[in-house]
Design a protein around this nucleic acid. Sequence first.
DNA 1: TTGTTAAACTAACACTTGTTAGTTTAGAGA
DNA 2: TCTCTAAACTAACAAGTGTTAGTTTAACAA
Lengths: 191, 191
Amino acid sequence: MSTKTETRKEEIIRIAAKLFKQKGYSAVTMRDLAKTMGIKAASLYNHIESKQAILQDVILTIAEEFTLGMASIQNQKASSTEQLKALIQLHVRIACHNPDGLAALNSDWMHLEDKLEYYLQLRNDYEANFRHIIERGIENKEIKNVDIEVILFSMLSTLRTLYLWIPKKDRLSEDELSASLTKILIEGINT
Amino acid sequence: MSTKTETRKEEIIRIAAKLFKQKGYSAVTMRDLAKTMGIKAASLYNHIESKQAILQDVILTIAEEFTLGMASIQNQKASSTEQLKALIQLHVRIACHNPDGLAALNSDWMHLEDKLEYYLQLRNDYEANFRHIIERGIENKEIKNVDIEVILFSMLSTLRTLYLWIPKKDRLSEDELSASLTKILIEGINT
DNA sequence: TTGTTAAACTAACACTTGTTAGTTTAGAGA
DNA sequence: TCTCTAAACTAACAAGTGTTAGTTTAACAA
């Protein structure tokens, strides 16, 4: 294989994310996680530091992926509409590749302890950049002059919730989903 | 006053919903709830049956409100677009009046025990009815013939997440928010 | 064979959880 | 004043929590 095979630690984090998605961070015990892995709870600590460290790994990996993706989109100076399409693709791609982690990011971020502030900073920056792209679109008359916060909220809500729908819709490819979403979010639904 | 003053039980449920929104059902302890109420944990049980009963009350009250609202909208046989507008108003109204309860419904439904099946039935019925309204709109050519599941997902995601944004946006009245949302969700954002 | 090591194990810890039992308090009606 | 009751209290419970310490196992390198 070209890709290195998964380490035990990575496996634990992957399974943990899956459980976090099902029940939430607080409701998942180390004994739950161990049982799913087929070992005893104490054995987990040969591989990971703490329950909290697992959450940090799951959430921050994805948060930084979004930050990187946003930076890349802002570098390629395209039109606002093109940048929005690229953002939709970014969300679809990440949601397809790691729906469980994304669920934890959306639902369990408030249980981050030491890294909470850092996470919130990344999220605020991301939202500010997203808002900026929409603002430019309104100035250029590419985008309707409706309340900008409502536009931002509506797009982010849809994109952030993708992880809930993607697992049920494997009939739709990543590209098809991006295309449909782009059409709906940008052009609306009425004829 | 015309409205009866809040009972102690109602107060407990209201505060519980607020805490559930902040940390999630599993992370809120009866001692947390009691401390916020200014009493001891054991005293809560003079008013409520169990922690689980609080969750059921919070979630099912709202779930039934949505079910009732949907039925009312389907009775008034308007165009699909008009019915979608009414649905948007329904979501905005409920989210404005009980954002905390709505948060619990969205994030903590999986912790329902005995009532889980009932909740899922209400939710499935609601989604099926929503889907049906969109279907009729496509048949009538009121709505673009894009993948119907993507349209449904996009609208529901936005409407279901309203509770996250409403508390920060009290500058926007309920009616103004409905109006902006309707414009964006139905007509899209491009000029 | 022997020594090393990753990764499992058992046992226990200190603390927190939802909840119950029984008691006290304070205000209203007689 | 006396009684009743809603609603608070203290104390305790059994079960579950994340985590640590120390031990065993099994595979591989020497």
